[in-house]
């Protein structure tokens, strides 16, 4: 009788060892992380700061490049008191003439230049003037070759580099960090990284409930992240539980 009691106590003690979610098991949770990415195209914005008429010579010009290869321009300056031809007649480009006097202020030069550009029919840019600065926005979403101030002393600055729209969908996310939360814990207990195919695996887990999540960028604000989370339950020892695919924005 005594041995039976002793054995019963031993096995009761043994079975009372409480296991909780976490390491020390033989099961695994696996999944795949895929990503979407969208970035809108951007117009190239050029700012031209004009000088006064006294700093411009009859026949000076500058180059205006656009995203349309067949519509490249040069803007040249003609002083009416001079009888010679001010047009440098650059091949492959369309000339836009601006009339000026040596007494014109830098604001007048800017205003006249913007008016001359805006008057060209079909020019693939929009323009505006503010004091002595002309802002020229290319209508394409392309990285336009930088314009050049030619023979003038105008200042040129690319305020915004143009680029085309970027969009990818459902590509495997390599080296992405995946987090696991054990049981009822509030914060991540462990993490792994995905392989080249976007796959991840948490191994050596005990039976129980887990939360597995990946951080995704908010498509409206790239500085903000949110969780793409799935709850996973391991019911049996030595099993592999596959989660649904995680799709994130990156």
């Amino acid at each position: 009788m005594k041995p039976l009691i002793l054995l019963s106590i031993l096995f009761l003690s043994f079975s009372s060892c409480k296991k909780i979610e976490g390491p020390g098991g033989t099961s695994a949770i696996r999944g795949v992380v895929k990503g979407n990415h969208f970035k809108a195209g951007q117009h190239e914005v050029l700012q031209v700061i004009c000088t006064a008429g006294g700093q411009i010579e009859h026949g000076d010009y500058w180059l205006l490049n656009t995203g349309n290869p067949s519509k490249q321009y040069y803007i040249y300056y003609k002083n009416p008191t001079w009888i010679s031809n001010a047009d440098p007649q650059l091949q492959g480009r369309i000339g836009i003439m601006v009339t000026f006097n040596y007494s014109d202020s830098n604001v007048e030069i800017a205003t006249n230049t913007q008016a001359a550009i805006a008057s060209v029919v079909g020019i693939p840019v929009s323009s505006m003037v503010s004091n002595d600065m002309i802002t020229i926005t290319d209508q394409s979403n392309l990285d336009v070759p930088d314009s050049d101030n030619g023979t003038t002393s105008f200042g040129m600055d690319v305020a915004n580099q143009g680029n085309s729209e970027e969009s990818t969908s459902n590509i495997p996310m390599a080296e992405e960090r995946v987090y696991i939360v054990y049981g009822k814990n509030a914060y991540a207990s462990d993490d792994v990284r995905t392989d080249e195919a976007g796959r991840f695996s948490f191994e050596g887990l005990q039976t129980g409930n887990y939360k597995v999540y990946v951080l995704s960028k908010d498509p409206l604000n790239e500085e903000v992240y949110y969780r793409v989370q799935k709850e996973v339950s391991i019911q049996n020892k030595a099993t592999i539980v596959d989660t649904e695919t995680y799709t994130i924005n990156y």
Binding site: P3, S13, I20, Y182
Partner: peptide
Amino acid sequence: FSGYRFGLLPNSNSGLDLNPTTYRHRT
């Protein structure tokens, strides 16, 4: 023979259950 052993040891996963020690049973 039959035997039982209860072990007490440092808990390398104390971050998970906030216990500095953990236990081990052996039958």
